[in-house]
Simulated assay, not measured.
Amino acid sequence: GNLMSRTADIPVTAALHHHGEEPEAAGYTLDELFHLSRSTVLQQRVIALQTLSNIIRQAHTGIYDRDLQLPLIPKLIEAGILFLIRWSMDEQIESVYMVAIECLANLIAPRKDEEILSQTNHWPCGYYEPLLTPPDIDLGEKKSESDLTDIEILEQDLIKCLFRMNVLKRLVYLFDRMKLLPASTITIPVKHSFHILIRMARHSMTCANQ
């Protein structure tokens, strides 16, 4: 997930070159990573998703702020990263859906944010944490939220879009699949899954009850 100069002198043997429009340039652009994530070659899909996951994780730390004029995360969401992750979670191959889970966890549940929220104090009336609910969705000329497309929901409320895309049901299904795998293999993806569920629950009481 590190930035690389387009003119960096890196040998082809370093495995950082691609077969896009500029095969002589080392590294990958975001467009190329999006393209590779839908490749028919399994290893390319996994590498692309893992790289995108690392980029998202680092973007939340602010590491790119000095080099980019605009925040990266909103641009990735606008480009369709959430739909890419959701499609990858539908894969039957463990290495793909596991890295997709990691990517989603990094997108919606940044580690530092979760650490701060986890330090919420116990108040006299009990244990309180803030709801992370955005403003009510603007329906425009539509009559109800059900009339809005996934993209229209995403533009206003990412977590509601996840519910619309049945991410919760998909995670339940993947939990059942992962039970059949060795514990050493599923520890990290299960941890990421819980981070996703916790963030979805923090959206609102309605989401938490689901």
Rank of each mutant, 00 (worst) to 15 (best):
P23Y: 10
L52Y: 03
Q58K: 14
L180Y: 13
I186E: 03
L30A: 04
I10E: 00
V46N: 05
V46S: 04
I151A: 05
I73D: 01
Q44D: 13
H122G: 01
L162H: 02
T185V: 13
T187I: 09
Y128W: 03
H203S: 03
E152H: 08
S39H: 07
E115P: 00
A48Q: 00
S193I: 06
S118M: 09
K179S: 09
K191M: 05
S204F: 03
L49N: 10
N209W: 09
V46P: 02
T13Y: 12
A105L: 08
H17D: 03
V190P: 00
H18K: 09
F163D: 02
T13L: 08
S53N: 10
P135S: 11
A208Y: 12
A105G: 02
I47V: 13
I63D: 00
E129V: 14
R199Q: 11
I137R: 12
R111S: 07
Q69N: 11
V41C: 06
M205N: 06
L180T: 15
G126Q: 03
N54Q: 12
I63R: 11
Q50K: 15
P11A: 06
G27E: 01
T185F: 10
I188D: 02
L168Y: 14
L16V: 12
N2G: 07
K160Q: 07
L181C: 13
R202T: 10
I196W: 00
Q210L: 06
S193H: 02
P134F: 13
Y28Q: 06
H192V: 07
Q119L: 05
S95A: 14
L52V: 13
I56K: 06
E91W: 09
Q44A: 03
A100F: 03
R202H: 15
W87T: 00
E141S: 13
L148N: 09
K160W: 04
K160F: 06
F175R: 12
Y127L: 07
P134Q: 09
M200H: 05
D157K: 05
I137G: 04
E114L: 08
D113S: 14
L104H: 02
R164W: 08
D9Y: 14
I93Y: 02
G140P: 07
E78P: 04
L49E: 01
F34H: 08
